[in-house]
Design a protein around this nucleic acid. Structure first.
Length: 393
RNA sequence: CCGUGGGUGGCAGAACGGUCAUGCAGCAGUCUGUAAAACUGUUUCAAGUUGGUUCGACUCCAGCCCCACGGA
């Protein structure tokens, strides 16, 4: 069996159902990937994640990389899977997003206050202690080999949507050059982690809202010779219409036989429907876990008809804000017929409201379990629908 | 009973002879490849009490009530 493979099983319109095989098991797509930045999907343990049906989770190279002791312990454990006691697939982001997200918090000196970008890489100031760190494509790859995920990401330069065409070209050239350097480094190290396991490398399509840049980038990443192609950028996962536009520009250019990863898509249930219908096989977002902690519970389900996946919910945007007064006396189960552990065990809205208002720790787990399962259930249902009604490959 | 200090919104706690304290709570909203158990907005509710001075008093004055500490 190959260490990494993608099998496209069926298509329905642009939507795809497939199967990714990795050294740590199989991923059925389309799938939502819960985010566990610091080797933890906040408030959940591995049992919770297995129970919720998570085939794969994310971790972040920047957050683990700037914690030297953590990294050493992780290394001594034989890699992230054993370190966090999660034996299913893991994907690590390269740290490229942090140059964007850390820098953009400071509009006075956008992108350069905490993050300084040169051709060689990005210098970060740690958000933990202010210490300086430098990430080059090679260093990101090295860290990702130490972490030991099944899928690793190329180090990219995420340009803001507002980037003009000349600056966009410069940024895209950087992303492409860095992707080549990542690939070179990856091959030099036999495409393996420090622990001898195969690591799939994905390239990232950038180009902001310039169709010619996006197409050029899709062409480049499609031919780079890596295992999968991701689509990133400020708009992706943030602006649904923009995400649709970008995908429409590049959809025909992306190789059919490689997995397509929409970076940052999946804030709530409707995003699952959007991501799947656009043909993304994998997508991730901090939304569901963060929304859970902040009181927004994803209550709804998907109705699949033909090529349309529609989210049905009694609540605005499919979100039930559990902190609202109206739920203080609502003794119904959070969501009728929900198959998450929280709902199956019968936890009521009134009780979850109470836990949330009282800032009880158990709230975070119960709420996160529900949101993660809701995302995965919708992903699974769409997959089943594509397999049952789509064209077999 | 004497002395001293003090009574400000649901709670905590400032300033000021005239204009928004503020925080928490409450109520609602927002969440990008996680600097997020975070952030944003916001209603009502004040001056222990009775009088007085003043154009105007939460603020100054007096009586009464209450609280804290010390003393008998």
């Amino acid at each position: 069996m190959p260490p990494f493979s993608f099998k496209l099983q069926a298509t329905l319109g642009k939507a795809r159902a497939g199967q990714i095989t990795t050294p740590h098991g199989v991923i059925n797509t389309p799938i939502f990937m819960p985010v566990g930045t610091v080797a933890s999907v906040k408030s959940l343990d591995s049992n919770d994640l297995v129970e919720a049906g998570a085939d794969i989770i994310l971790a972040n190279t920047y957050h683990l990389g700037i914690r030297e002791k953590t990294l050493k312990a992780l290394q001594a454990s034989g890699g992230i899977h054993d370190f966090m006691n999660w034996q299913r697939p893991i994907l690590t982001d390269s740290g490229g997003f942090q140059a964007f997200s850390l820098g953009s918090k400071f509009p006075h000196n956008t992108r350069n206050f905490l993050a300084g970008i040169t051709d060689d890489g990005v210098s970060f100031r740690s958000h933990l202690d202010g210490s300086e760190h430098f990430f080059s494509p090679e260093y990101s790859m090295e860290l990702q080999r130490v972490i030991g995920a099944d899928i690793i990401m190329a180090f990219d330069d995420l340009m803001p949507d507002a980037t003009n065409l000349p600056d966009g070209k410069t940024s895209l050239e950087l992303t492409h050059a860095w992707a080549e350097r990542c690939k070179f480094d990856w091959e030099k190290n036999y495409r393996q982690s420090q622990y001898g396991k195969y690591q799939a490398l994905f390239g990232i399509v950038q180009g902001a809202l310039h169709s010619e840049l996006r197409q050029q980038s899709a062409e480049f990443m499609g031919k780079l010779g890596v295992d999968g192609v991701a689509v990133g950028g400020e708009t992706i996962g943030y602006n649904t219409e923009g995400t649709k536009d970008v995908m429409a520009w590049i959809e025909d250019i992306l190789p059919r036989e490689k997995p397509r990863y929409g970076m940052g898509i999946g804030r709530d249930l409707s995003d699952v429907a959007v991501a799947a219908s656009l043909g993304f096989d994998m997508f991730d977002c901090v939304g569901p876990t963060r929304l859970a902690r902040n009181g927004s519970l994803l209550v709804g389900d998907v109705a699949c008809e033909g090529e349309s996946f529609r989210i049905e919910s009694k609540h605005p945007r499919g979100r039930l804000n559990i902190g609202r007064q109206e739920f203080s006396a609502d003794t119904r189960v959070l969501q009728e017929n929900c198959d998450c552990a929280t709902c199956r065990e019968g936890y009521t809205r009134a009780y979850l409201h109470h836990l949330y208002k009282a800032k009880e720790l158990s709230y975070f787990r119960l709420a996160t379990i529900h949101n993660v399962r809701a995302m995965l259930r919708v992903s699974n249902k769409i997959r089943e629908h594509i397999l049952a009604n789509g064209e077999e490959e």
